[in-house]
């Protein structure tokens, strides 16, 4: 490509080096430890005993019966499936709520843009736990929404809002909304309005212009935003526990429990490795496809 005409290999090394070094040492290093832990046995006091074992991975799928025979146990798979469904819901809802806002911000005059962007992130200076507490105040039986509804006479008895799946979704969206808005903003901001104008000149209505021109241009941002919302939602546990009532385990809680009260680091590590493998494969597939797509477009 033209951006790097000469000695590109050298330049490539120099540019990537900081990222690869920092992550390579301080992320890959710890990750190797975790990978090793997942093949060891749990020490009763937390931590691991250095004895090789597949036990942690076996535990994910099978129970040991009293006579030591293996029984298939779908409990953990259910937990994974439930968490994935919730994360998908949170991601799509964040997109629906975040996209119009990102678009609106990106089409403001320049001196407004940064301000609006900052306004999107300011609520997140406050700790997640405190923000979630505020949602409890809004959602609970004698909370803000129910008080308003009952004052308006829209309902006689308070609606059950807290401790529902809806409450979890609200909590998750609220936890990760800026991660959707900011990348979309970054990709929309560069849109040349003349392209949209051209679409209108070709008799595209607003909807068609959105579908055929704006959305394709925003695609990199939408993908980046979805990744940034989906993965953290998958591991989230504060919103599910506090707003959902925590009556059903999420994968984030499950892993957290293994490193705290259950003192089973190998199993916690194994679940984390399984999760990592799944997400990594998805990401690599995406990266390959995105790369191929670009290559074809260039041709």
């Amino acid at each position: 490509m033209s951006a790097l005409p000469q000695s590109s290999a050298l330049r490539r090394m120099a540019g990537l080096m900081p990222a690869l070094l920092v992550i390579g040492i301080f992320m890959l290093g710890p990750l190797c430890i975790i990978a090793a832990y997942s093949f060891m046995e749990a020490s009763p006091y937390g931590g691991v005993r250095p004895e090789f074992s597949f036990g942690a991975y076996r535990q994910f799928l099978f129970d040991l019966d009293l006579d030591d025979s293996l029984i298939f146990n779908p409990a953990y798979l259910n937990i994974v499936a439930r968490s994935v469904v919730l994360a998908v819901a949170a991601t799509s809802l964040s997109l629906v709520l975040g996209f119009p806002a990102a678009y609106y911000i990106a089409t403001r005059p320049p001196h407004w843009r940064t301000v609006l962007l900052l306004l999107v992130t300011i609520p997140f200076w406050t700790n997640l736990l405190i923000r979630t507490f505020a949602w409890i105040l809004i959602l609970r039986d004698d909370g803000l929404i129910n008080s308003v509804l009952m004052w308006l006479g829209a309902t006689d008895a308070p609606l059950r809002l807290l401790y529902t799946d809806g409450a979890i979704a609200v909590g998750l969206i609220y936890s990760y909304l800026p991660f959707m808005v900011l990348p979309i903003y970054a990709s929309l901001e560069k849109i040349d309005m003349r392209l949209v104008e051209a679409a209108h000149d070709l008799h595209a209505n607003r909807l068609q212009a959105m579908w055929r021109v704006i959305l394709p241009l925003a695609k990199p941002g939408i993908i980046a935003g979805s990744i940034l919302v989906f993965i953290p939602s998958l591991g989230a546990f504060i919103a599910p526990d506090l707003l959902g009532g925590g009556r059903r385990l999420m994968i984030g809680s499950l892993i957290h429990m293994q490193f705290s009260s259950s003192r089973n680091w190998p199993f916690g590590s194994a679940v984390a490795m399984i999760l990592l493998a799944v997400v990594l494969v998805l990401m690599l597939v995406y990266a390959r496809n995105a790369g191929r797509g670009r290559g074809e477009a260039a041709r």
């Binding site: 749990a42 006091y45 259910n78 009556r247 293994q258």
Partner: peptide
């Protein structure tokens, strides 16, 4: 007491079942 390995495993299994 600080529980031993066997009981911790059993506690964990029970809890996972309850919150399944």
């Amino acid at each position: 007491w600080a529980c031993g390995e066997e009981s911790i495993r059993l506690y964990d299994r029970v809890w996972t079942r309850v919150l399944q």
